[in-house]
Write a protein that binds this DNA or RNA. Structure first.
Length: 308
DNA sequence: AAACCTTCCAACCGCCCCTCC
DNA sequence: GGGAGGGGCGGTTGGAAGGTT
């Protein structure tokens, strides 16, 4: 038992929600005397609370410089950017957001941002694409797609399941698709040192120069909307009408992930599982799979017989 | 209208680190 | 050096509020 935890065990000390009267006592005392020693503060302030409870109430709620209300887009961007660098260091993140407390940011992350990233197919821990789930989707596709993607591309290296999953998703998540931009995406992924080996440049060039082997789905594509990893201007705010690949290979797509936020259970609910370093709930996985299984391969303009 | 479900967030909890003696 | 005290931090919980059936 840690020493500080004794705080919560002391009999006679009140727990639970603070009353307006308690708040007033605490504010009055701190305004007069400051908050040097939290342990003795409640005694002098006439509060039947432990010092730790007083400190939390002050820092998370009563402090006069606390900003209330919804997080702005800029604040949300700041949080995501900071989190991608320093992780769950809420106090450090809070230091970048004047008026926001670490607790508030932590809550906002868990209730909004985390879910948003998951819906986008981004691991909220690593901020990388969730290839684990993409692989799951591949294994769940009992029937192969209506065309043989590796054969279609004449790219043996795409037989790498990771790459195949990514490529499949790239294709399936796009309402719009054309060969040149897909190739550009691959080239950029390759150049940006995606962990898995990608196409040799010679093969990329070959594909680039032989677009006829790729079906033209008759639309333009936004797959190659690269953006720097630290440029979070479009980090989900437009619901990602287009898939996006970041410079470090991070990829997100609006067709990967989960259903509406209203259908997702709290992330700390029971029934969680651990997949490749990220925890997901049964509901999330089910939701993800249901989405996966409805992958919509745009078939218009595709001559399947060519690949038979 | 009521029961049930989901979301949200204030507060709790326990661990850790720093300082002091 | 090491034990005690104080405070900070991140994870988790529980209940209120709102939404849905």
């Amino acid at each position: 038992m840690s020493r500080s935890s004794l705080c919560w065990e002391k009999n006679g000390l009140k727990k639970g929600p603070w009353t307006a009267e308690e708040d007033q006592k605490l504010v009055d005392y701190i305004q007069k005397h400051g908050h040097g020693r939290w342990r003795t503060l409640p005694k002098y302030a006439g509060l039947k609370r432990c010092g730790k409870s007083c400190r939390l109430r002050w820092t998370n709620y009563l402090r006069p410089d606390i900003k209330r209300g919804k997080f702005s887009i800029e604040e949300e961007e700041n949080i995501i950017q900071a989190h991608s660098v320093i992780g769950n260091k809420w106090s450090a993140i809070a230091a970048r957001l004047p008026g926001r407390t670490d607790n508030e940011i932590k809550n906002y992350w868990n209730t909004h941002i985390r879910k948003k990233l998951l819906r986008m197919g981004i691991d909220p821990v690593t901020h990388a694409p969730r290839l684990d789930l993409l692989q799951l989707s591949s294994s769940l596709l009992m029937k192969p797609p209506p065309f043989d993607l590796p054969g279609l591309l004449s790219i043996p290296s795409l037989l790498n399941p990771d790459i195949l999953s990514l490529a499949t998703t790239l294709m399936s998540c796009q309402e719009n698709f054309n060969t040149q931009e897909m190739v550009t995406t691959m080239q950029n992924l390759h150049q940006n040192q995606l962990q898995s080996p990608f196409l040799p440049q010679s093969q990329l060039n070959q594909v680039t120069n032989s677009s006829s082997i790729m079906p033209n789905f008759g639309h333009d594509i936004a797959v190659n909307r690269y953006q720097p990893y630290n440029n979070l201007a479009n980090y989900g705010y437009d619901e990602l009408k287009h898939g996006t690949v970041s410079q470090n290979g991070a990829f997100w797509c609006n067709n990967i992930g989960f259903g509406s936020s209203s259908s997702i259970t709290p992330l700390n609910s029971s029934g969680t599982s651990f997949m490749n370093g990220c925890t997901i709930t049964e509901d999330e996985r089910a939701s993800y799979c249901s989405k996966t299984l409805t992958f919509d391969f745009p078939m218009s303009g595709l001559d399947v017989n060519r690949f038979a």
